[in-house]
């Protein structure tokens, strides 16, 4: 509980110089607030959960905790990649829940100041920008920042 408060407070304090962990999915770059990241893990055995959307790959044993695993390629309807020894799982904390995200590869940690973050583009009602928190510019790179609450909500819709 306090950890979450702390995170909220810290993110607020470090307004200039937000830190993001960036990773790639099919050549595209994405970013997650670094304070949400609990750890980065190699692929371990995943137990599928029956009758779930295909992006929910199943659950994994993370030192005794049962953690759901979300495949971000599948979540964004990208072509599926086969899992190999380079596939990594970013373990994130969202509220009180812990979730693993399968990504192609982790790139680096990026400092982005506030003025280099743009709101998500409004593409009309046709496109879904709900899980975008914004776009970060860093030199030539454009990084899609993800809104984790929207991205990983497991309530049956």
């Amino acid at each position: 509980m306090t950890a979450v408060d702390d995170i909220a407070q810290l993110t607020e304090l470090s307004t200039d110089g937000n830190q993001f962990l960036t990773f790639t999915l099919q050549e595209e770059e994405f970013g997650i607030e670094i304070l949400r990241v609990q750890e980065i893990k190699g692929l371990a055995r995943i137990t599928p959960i029956p009758n779930m959307p295909n992006y929910i790959r199943g659950v994994m044993n993370l030192r005794g905790t049962v953690v759901p695993i979300v495949d971000l390629r599948a979540r964004f309807s990208m072509p599926e990649a086969s899992y190999n020894q380079f596939t990594v799982i970013i373990v994130v904390t969202i509220g009180e829940k812990v979730t693993g995200l399968v990504v192609d590869a982790v790139s680096d940690v990026l400092n982005v100041s506030d003025e280099n973050i743009e709101p998500p583009p409004d593409m009309g009602s046709g496109s879904d920008t709900a899980f975008m928190a914004g776009i970060a510019k860093s030199g030539e790179r454009l990084i899609t920042l993800l809104n984790m609450e929207e991205l990983v909500s497991f309530d049956p819709s």
Binding site: R45, T47, I49, P50, N51, M52, G58, V59, M60, N61, G64, T65, V66, V67, P68, K97, V98, T99, F154, D155, P156
Partner: peptide
Amino acid sequence: IKNLESNFRKVPGIAGATILGDGRVAL
């Protein structure tokens, strides 16, 4: 018994999960 709701949500037909001797999760 580990409940799935703590990190995930209720799954129809599944009461929870447990961790087997080899470290993997079984529903």
